[in-house]
Simulated assay, not measured.
Amino acid sequence: MRHFDITMTHETCSDVWMPYLPRARGWQEMVARPIAAKTEEAPVALFQSAPVNRSGRVDFTAELSRHIKIDSYGRHFHNRAISGPDLGRKTKIETIARHRFCLALENSIEPDYVTEKIYDAFDAGTIPIYLGAPNVDEFVPANSYIDASAFPNAKHLAAYLQHLIETPEDYEAYFAWRSKPLPDSILKRLPGLETPTFCRLTNLVRQRLEERPHPPSGRPMLPFGRVSFLRTRLRRWKKKISS
């Protein structure tokens, strides 16, 4: 990383933070949208197409499916087709909304890596079953999701889901956050997200260039070192000769 002047990633320590966290207007639209009726027979929905499995989500899904019915609409573990035309995210949200729960399983488990999966479930008015970032609570309201890692195994998780199905007041408690202010851990981050990510990047680049002393006129900058510079010039020269 020593070769890079600026980092722009999902990590909060990046120079330019690029999260999946919705902006303020996105949260407002979520809570304003009514919760749809849960009409599907299968309690759990899953949208997953990538086979990446650094989090163990593939094995987790397979084991959970032995104890509770899962409708999987993605290419992975596919057992259910989308009804009607596929209009992208709109169809995805409408499909999730008909299920009581949605699996929100990250492909990797690392701090700050909270992707759109859990926010899609919020948007659909469905309870996410989350597996991923250990600090997810910094990016979502309290008591808004089910932590898959809190259960000793998939069988215990399935039993808890069945309890929620049979106990409406306990199920509905997961939506209480919709009528409360967002926690400070989210609110303090929202103002910085109003400026588009690449605008923040270009602003920082401009600032860094203004702060950095300019090299002597005509002297090349070698951010990757002299050897890398010479190798690059040699490759370009060989390419020019061969053409």
Rank of each mutant, 00 (worst) to 15 (best):
L182C: 06
R23Q: 10
R233G: 08
E29N: 13
L131K: 09
A142G: 03
V16M: 04
G26A: 10
P191Q: 09
G225V: 06
V52T: 15
R2D: 12
I35Y: 01
A176C: 06
T7C: 04
G132H: 01
E40Y: 02
Y174T: 01
L182D: 02
G26E: 07
R226A: 13
R233K: 13
P215K: 05
I93F: 07
T61Y: 00
L230W: 11
Y73P: 03
Y113Q: 09
L21F: 07
R66D: 07
A121I: 04
K69P: 00
R80C: 10
S14V: 03
R23C: 05
V44W: 03
D184Y: 10
R236V: 11
S83R: 13
L209E: 09
F175Y: 11
Q28V: 02
S49D: 11
C199G: 00
K92L: 15
R89S: 05
E194K: 09
L46S: 12
A142S: 11
R25Y: 01
P181D: 12
A142Y: 07
A36Y: 03
C199F: 11
L187W: 01
R54D: 15
R200H: 03
Q207T: 13
S242E: 14
F47R: 13
S243D: 12
W17I: 03
T126F: 13
Q28N: 13
S49C: 08
Y113A: 07
E210T: 07
A176F: 03
I129Q: 01
A133Q: 09
A37Y: 01
Y171E: 01
R80H: 10
L103D: 00
S228V: 01
E172R: 15
K38G: 06
S108K: 14
P128A: 06
S108E: 14
I6F: 04
